[in-house]
Amino acid sequence: MDPSELCFPEAFNSSCKKKVSLHSVNTLIYFGLFFMSLVTTALNLLVIISISHFRKLHSPTYFLLLSLAVSDFLVGLFMFFQIIFINGCWFLGDLLCVLYYVVSGVLISASVGTMVLISLDRYLAICDPLRYSTKVTTKRVQICISLCWICSVVYILILVRDNFQQPGTFNSCSGECVVEIGFIENITDLILTFIISITVIMVLYGRVFVVALSQVQAMRSNIIAIKQKQSKKINVKKSELKAAGILGVVVVSFIFCICPYFCVTLIGKSSLLNTSTMTLLLYLFSFNSCLNPLIYALFYPWFRKAMKIIFTFQVLRSGSSGANIL
C-alpha cells in the first residue's frame, strides 16, 4: 500500500486508510462546508446580537429564538472539525474524538429541547391567549432554557461515560474516531430525543394549526362589524398567528433535517462517526442551522431592520437598544 494512502504513514501496520476520492470532489466538499460554516456562524451571530441588543426583542418567544441561534452558531463553528475529518482520518487524538461526539450530541439535544419549548410557547399563545402573559414570563423561559442546556450536557455525558474511561478503545486502527453507546442507552436516546420529542412537537403544532384555522375563520366572519377596541385584539391575534406560522416553518425544516439521523439509529446502526453515512447526516443537521436565520430574514421584518442597523453601525450609538424594530 502507498504510504500516502494512510492516515499515519509512520505507523504502517496500525494506521487507517484514507478515503479515496477525486481531488476535485474533495475541493468542492471543502469549499461547500467552509462556505456553509461561514454563512451559518455569521447569520446566527446577527440573530444573537439583534435579540441581545434590542430591548423590544426581550420577550419569551425571542429568548427561545436566541437559544436556538446560539445552538446554530456553535454548529457553524463545529463544522470546522467536520472539514478536517472529511478524508476519514482523525488527527486530534482519542480524547478529542469523544469530545467531538459529546459536543455534537449536546447541540442536537439542546436544539430538540428548544424546539419543544418553542412549540409549547406557540401552543399557549394561540390556544390559551388570555393566560399566556401570566404563564409564560421572561424569567420562567430563561430558567427553562438554562435547564434545557444543562440537562443536555449531563444527558450526553451519561450516554458516553464508558468512552471517557479509555478513549479510543473501540477504534480498530490509528486515525479512526469511533464512539460506541450501549444498547440500552441507544434505545433510551432514541425514545427521549426523537420519538417523544418529535411526537410532542407534532401534537402541539397540530393543535395550534387547528385552533389557528378556527380563529382565522372567526375573524373573517366578524371583520365587518367590529369596534376599535376589538380591532386591536384581532391585530394581536393576527401577529400571534403569523409568528406561529413562521416558527412552524422553522419546526418543519428542523424535523426534516434531523429525522434521517435518528432513522439510522432506529434501524439499528451504531454511532460510528467515521462512516460516510453518519457524516452526511451530521452535514444535513448542520444545514438546518444555516437555514433558520435565512427563514428569519425572509419572514421577519425585525431581523432585516436589525441587520440594517448593525451593518450601518447605528448599533454603536447610545440609545440604539431602544429602537422600535417590531
Score class of each variant (00 low, 15 high):
Gly113Phe: 01
Cys151Gly: 01
Leu124Ile: 11
Asp121Pro: 01
Asp128Val: 09
Leu157Cys: 11
Ile145Cys: 08
Gly113Met: 09
Gln166Pro: 00
Leu147Lys: 04
Cys148Leu: 11
Thr134Cys: 08
Ser152Val: 06
Ser119Asp: 12
Ile158Lys: 11
Arg161Phe: 00
Asp128Ile: 08
Gln142Thr: 09
Thr114Asn: 12
Arg161Gln: 13
Cys144Val: 13
Leu147Met: 10
Val141Met: 11
Val160Arg: 01
Val160Lys: 01
Ser119Trp: 11
Trp149His: 07
Val160Ile: 07
Phe164Tyr: 02
Val112Arg: 02
Arg122Phe: 08
Val154His: 02
Ile118Leu: 14
Asp121Glu: 10
Ser133Gln: 12
Cys148Ala: 06
Thr114Trp: 00
Trp149Ile: 11
Cys127His: 05
Ile158His: 13
Tyr132Thr: 11
Gln166Tyr: 07
Ile126Phe: 03
Ile150Ala: 13
Ile145Thr: 12
Leu147Val: 04
Gln166Cys: 12
Tyr155Cys: 05
Lys135Leu: 14
Asp121Leu: 02
Pro167Gly: 03
Ser146Cys: 10
Leu159Asn: 07
Cys144Ala: 15
Ser152Trp: 00
Val116Trp: 07
Asp162Ile: 00
Leu157Lys: 05
Leu120Asn: 05
Lys139Met: 09
Thr114Ile: 15
Lys135Phe: 13
Thr134Ile: 07
Thr134Lys: 07
Ser133Glu: 15
Val136Lys: 03
Leu124Asp: 08
Val112Asn: 05
Ile118Ser: 04
Ile145His: 07
Phe164Thr: 04
Thr137Met: 02
Gln142Asp: 11
Tyr155Leu: 06
Tyr123Pro: 05
Met115Asn: 10
Gln142Leu: 15
Leu130Met: 10
Ser152Pro: 00
Cys148Val: 12
Val136Phe: 02
Cys144Tyr: 06
Leu124Asn: 08
Phe164Leu: 07
Leu120His: 12
Ala125Asp: 12
Gln166Asn: 14
Thr137Val: 02
Val153Trp: 00
Arg122Gly: 12
Arg140His: 10
Tyr132Asn: 09
Tyr132Arg: 04
Leu147Tyr: 03
Val112Gly: 06
Asn163Lys: 03
Leu159Glu: 10
Ser152Arg: 03
Arg140Trp: 15
Cys144Arg: 06
Gln166Lys: 07
Pro167Phe: 04
Ile158Asn: 08
Trp149Pro: 00
Ser146Val: 06
Cys151Asp: 00
Arg161Val: 10
Trp149Tyr: 13
Leu157Phe: 04
Gln165Lys: 13
Leu130Ser: 15
Ile145Lys: 01
Arg161Lys: 10
Ile158Thr: 10
Thr138Phe: 15
Leu147Gln: 03
Arg140Lys: 11
Asp121Phe: 04
Ile145Gly: 06
Ile143Asp: 09
Thr114Val: 10
Thr137Ala: 02
Arg122Asn: 12
Ile156Trp: 00
Met115Trp: 09
Leu159Cys: 09
Leu157Trp: 01
Asp128Thr: 11
Pro167Lys: 00
Val112Cys: 09
Ile158Trp: 03
Ile118Gln: 05
Met115Lys: 13
Val154Tyr: 01
Cys151Phe: 01
Ser133Pro: 10
Asp128Cys: 07
Met115Ser: 12
Asp162Glu: 13
Ile145Leu: 14
Ser146Gly: 13
Asn163Ser: 08
Leu120Ser: 09
Arg140Glu: 11
Gly113Asp: 06
Thr134Asp: 15
Cys127Asp: 12
Leu147Asp: 06
Arg131Tyr: 15
Ser152Cys: 02
Tyr155Met: 08
Thr114Ser: 14
Gln142Lys: 12
Arg131Ile: 12
Thr138Tyr: 13
